[in-house]
């Protein structure tokens, strides 16, 4: 009896040893497989973020001989910096135009496109084209289109009997003009997200709503479509606001950030890479990062939820 028990015990021990050997092998493989990614993650994300935070409390300038610790001076300066505050305000105005129009129009187009059967692919492609196009090149085209004397847009305005509008020279029109281009670019992207959301709504619900007496399309929209699109809409608003806060190309091409068109990312670019005020730019970058992170929380929650379901 006891001999059997001993043999049993020995067997379990070897099984146990073997299992840990297998586990150790798997661990080694795991480390090996993630090693390049981990090294890059450190080099591209972790260390730069730490360095960035370090820069932000110094007066470091690229190429300068001495560097001083300045505490939160850079942040204080940022909030007293008229140019930066103007950039902040302009970016917010830009976002406040792009978000409602970019989301609302995209929803409208998606609802119309969703109802088409044979022509759906055509409309989808037409509205999505600006998303793929190189924005720098297209901004140049817009510059031409909006030209006060030789652009067709102003020609049309004049033909209708109005005064030509100097979209790209009147400082108060710069941000709205660029916001319109922003809407033009983001529309197709958002439309596709909404189309995916619409396709996911079960047809049954519309039928149930019709039998429940929702004869009016407005009723069906508010009973079924709008609430079922809730998560999609939230996500679209978040991605649109993030991309609005990252507006850069149109400014770089159309105005080079001149008065009236200062935006967050372009000011950051100027301070950090044109004027080499690295320390100050680092502080601005952290402010920019904080805004993006707050906006991203919604996006990550969305992505994360997809992990669990």
């Amino acid at each position: 009896m006891s001999a059997v028990a001993e043999i049993d015990g020995a067997a379990t021990a070897t099984v146990h040893a073997r299992r840990t050997a297998v586990e150790r092998k798997m661990m080694r493989r795991g480390f090996l497989f993630v090693a390049p990614a981990v090294l890059l993650l450190l080099a591209i994300y972790v260390i730069p973020v730490i360095v960035l935070a370090g820069f932000s409390v110094t007066d470091y300038q690229l190429g300068a001989l001495s560097t001083r610790f300045v505490g939160i001076d850079n942040f204080v300066n940022a909030f007293n910096d008229q140019v930066f505050m103007r950039a902040m305000k302009n970016t917010v105005i830009y976002a406040l135009i792009v978000i409602p129009l970019g989301v609302g129009l995209a929803l409208g187009v998606a609802l119309l496109v969703h109802g088409r059967k044979r022509s759906r692919a055509f409309w989808e492609a037409a509205y999505f084209l600006p998303v793929t196009a190189t924005l720098v090149a297209m901004a140049t085209v817009w510059q031409f289109l909006l030209h006060p004397s030789i652009g067709p847009v102003n020609a049309a305005i004049k033909w209708m009997g109005f005064e030509p509008v100097s979209f790209l020279s009147d400082p108060s029109l710069l941000i709205p003009t660029m916001a319109m281009i922003g809407v033009w670019q983001v529309l197709g992207f958002n439309m596709v997200l909404f189309l995916a959301g619409l396709t996911a709504i079960p047809q049954d619900l519309y039928e149930a709503a019709r039998l429940d007496g929702a004869k009016n399309p407005i009723d069906r929209f508010f009973t079924v479509t709008w609430p079922m699109l809730g998560p999609t809409t939230l996500f679209v608003v978040v991605t649109t606001s993030i991309s609005a806060f990252k507006v850069f190309e149109t400014v770089a091409v159309l105005t080079k950030g001149r008065f009236g068109s200062e935006v967050l990312l372009f000011s950051l670019y100027l301070e950090g890479f044109e004027y080499s005020n690295t320390g100050y730019a680092a502080a601005l970058t952290l402010i920019f990062l904080a805004i993006i992170l707050v906006l991203s929380i919604g996006q990550t929650v969305h992505l994360d939820r997809k992990v669990h379901y």
Partner: peptide
Amino acid sequence: ALCVPMQALALPLFV
């Protein structure tokens, strides 16, 4: 890291 845009890392990477 998904939430961190490239533009925020540009400065230290550039340096």
